[in-house]
Design a protein around this nucleic acid. Structure first.
Lengths: 134, 134
DNA sequence: CGACTTTGTATCGTGATACGATATGAGGGC
DNA sequence: GCCCTCATATCGTATCACGATACAAAGTCG
């Protein structure tokens, strides 16, 4: 890879494009797998963000907005839809009455477990296609 | 990471979520940077796919559909919009009269070079946050 | 060299969803 | 208690990828 500041070579562009292709391939796999199980990609990411939240199994809307890199209102809508499908629930926040605790339902747990296994396997399959060029 | 078949541990979920967070962070950075230069994320990906195409500097719509992981008609629309902004051009395909050669304009080259440098730097900055868990 | 299939591009209408603007109500400092 | 900030929620809008469809060129095979 070229050093800081220098113009990129053809090979650098190819490397960047290849990496982007890797990401898109992974996301495409994710989308198809997840849709095959009846949820949208965003819903899977929501479930994963909950179960994968450090040291906890739930999160507030605001925390989710950070982890999903979305605006808070977008997360509200996402949670609404996921709740409508019985994947997550809302509960009172332990300390802050303004906030909400979003957590997985039994169904959400089950679907997430299946999907996550498939994703881990795909990650292994893709191997170095996903490692960023630097 | 857990071995094949076994159920995922909390730590596995965290690793998967962290990786997804990395991807979304990178894409978010990309989106904001790219929009700041007057193009959409898809347009940047289009330009990059062209310049980063192996051994060539152009591609057909079909090839782009593969590299961008989109349906061909979506690529047609994307190329239309990018062409409307003077970023790419269409030219006759050298051997196949059905196909089209999509290639960068001077403007497209210039913008792409600037943006790609920023992306390379961001990749360096993010470091291991983007390496897939396996 | 015709008829039939496949391949590449293009058009149109639709659906999903992230967003900005806005509202409501609970914290927390003073 | 007053004010400002923060967390969640609602609504209208715009973007964009998609399926369905159309058409033209290329390949195929008798």
């Amino acid at each position: 890879m070229t050093t800081e500041g220098e113009p990129l070579t053809k090979r650098d562009f190819e490397a960047l494009a290849r990496f982007r292709f890797g990401i898109r391939s992974y996301l495409r796999f994710s989308e198809e797998t997840v849709r095959g199980h009846g949820l949208t990609p965003q819903q899977y990411q929501l479930l994963l963000a909950l179960k994968g939240f450090p040291d906890r199994d739930w999160a507030s809307v605001r925390e989710l907005a950070d982890r999903l890199q979305l605006r808070h209102n977008s997360v509200v809508e996402l949670v609404n839809r996921a709740q409508g499908e019985g994947l997550v629930t809302r509960a009172a926040h332990p300390t802050d009455a303004r906030a909400v605790r979003v957590l997985l339902t039994k169904l959400g747990e089950k679907v997430l477990a299946q999907l996550s296994t498939l994703h881990r396997d795909e990650l292994r399959r893709m191997g170095s296609a996903l490692t960023p060029p630097v």
